[in-house]
């Protein structure tokens, strides 16, 4: 044994082991352009590829931090619901799948909601967490949506939702389907309180989510390249045998066909939302009657609000009608 074998050799496995760790943690490849990306850079680019600007899926908490002023927000509690109401079991128990997802994500279910200031305006933001069972829609999601909508009405704040979901959560059977009308009722209450309900479609938004609250926004935005549609591509191919056109079901494809309003890059999203809310509502904070005063009534439009600061809500409504 020379000094060489003694000294250098043991170092080699150590060195190579270390080297093996590096690509796992520090390097990732873009699913779109396949270029290698230095991972820490991704948090700076908000999970967009620095080479091709491909928008990767974004963890829920990162997105909250990106949207609220100074990253400050308060989470809205996720209400408890009946867990596994059907006692559903396929190859695995639904109860176990649910627990696994909760452990993996640290979240109770696939929708999180928070409120706070965005561009100085109080807003309620709900974000769907694709990492939690594919962002699937079950009773907990529906209940969180309702709670967030109620918070928006209470705080007279616009309600913004970021969607990402494969659709209904089959393991809750018909009760997952019933979240389509349930969430619709909640967003109707927001709209009837005169508050904007904005939807931002992110990758992917399909199935029962796309066929309910995701397509009912006063304004509908989407992130570039996001897959958005009702039926899955595979199902369409299998059922119809049709060839799918280029860019089928992407955000840009939908915009071209008049289904959504605008495609906005993630880095510009907050500014765009602030701008849109300001265009819809004016710069001042909303002065609206509380929901108890006008149950189920249409509210005066925003234009009528100006100059009626002292007027009661009913007067404002009358003025709006007279105008």
């Amino acid at each position: 044994m020379s000094w060489l074998t003694d000294y250098v050799r043991p170092r080699i496995p150590g060195f190579s082991a270390k080297k093996k760790e590096v690509p796992d943690d520090l390097w990732t490849s873009c699913p779109s352009c396949q270029q290698m990306i230095y991972a820490p850079l991704l948090s700076e680019t908000h999970r967009c590829c620095p080479h091709c600007e491909h928008h990767m899926r974004m963890p829920m908490l990162e997105r909250f931090a990106l949207l609220f002023d100074d990253g400050q927000f308060e989470r809205i509690d996720i209400p408890s619901v009946a867990a596994d109401p059907l006692k559903f079991k396929d190859l695995k128990r639904y109860g176990d799948r649910l627990k696994d997802a909760q452990t993996k994500t640290g979240e109770k279910d696939s929708l999180g909601a928070a409120h706070g200031l965005m561009g100085g305006r109080e807003v309620v933001v709900a974000i769907m967490n694709f990492a939690f069972m594919g962002g699937s829609m079950g009773m907990a999601m529906g209940e969180t949506f309702v709670k967030a909508a109620e918070k928006a009405i209470e705080a007279k704040a616009p309600f913004i939702i970021f969607t990402a979901s494969g659709g209904a959560r089959m393991q809750e059977g018909i009760l997952s389907l019933m979240q389509m009308p349930r969430t619709t009722v909640a967003l109707q209450m927001v709209k009837e309180a005169g508050l904007p309900y904005l939807v931002v479609l992110t990758d992917p938004t399909t199935g029962g989510v796309s066929a309910s609250f995701a397509m009912l926004g006063d304004l509908t935005l989407a992130e570039p390249g996001a897959q958005i549609g009702f039926a899955g591509k595979r199902v369409i191919k299998q059922t119809t045998g049709e060839d799918l056109p280029d860019g089928f079901q992407t955000a840009e494809f939908l915009q071209e066909r008049g289904i959504i309003d605008v495609v906005v890059a993630r880095k510009d999203m907050k500014d765009k939302l602030v701008q849109l809310l300001s265009l819809l509502l004016g710069d001042a904070l909303l002065e609206l009657p509380s929901p108890e005063e006008v149950p189920g009534e249409r509210l005066p439009d925003v234009a009528a609000e100006e100059g009626s600061q002292d007027a009661t809500s009913d007067d404002a409504a009358t003025e709006a009608k007279d105008a």
């Binding site: 619709t184 397509m215 958005i228 009702f230 369409i236 799918l244």
Partner: peptide, 25 residues
């Protein structure tokens, strides 16, 4: 609902969502 290219292009999801909304309205 029919899963087809044309149906998607013409907003199948939106049509269903609006129909639910109308029922509730």
């Amino acid at each position: 609902a029919y899963p087809g290219v044309g149906a998607e292009e013409r907003g199948q999801a939106e049509a269903i969502a609006r129909s639910i909304e109308k029922c509730l309205d």
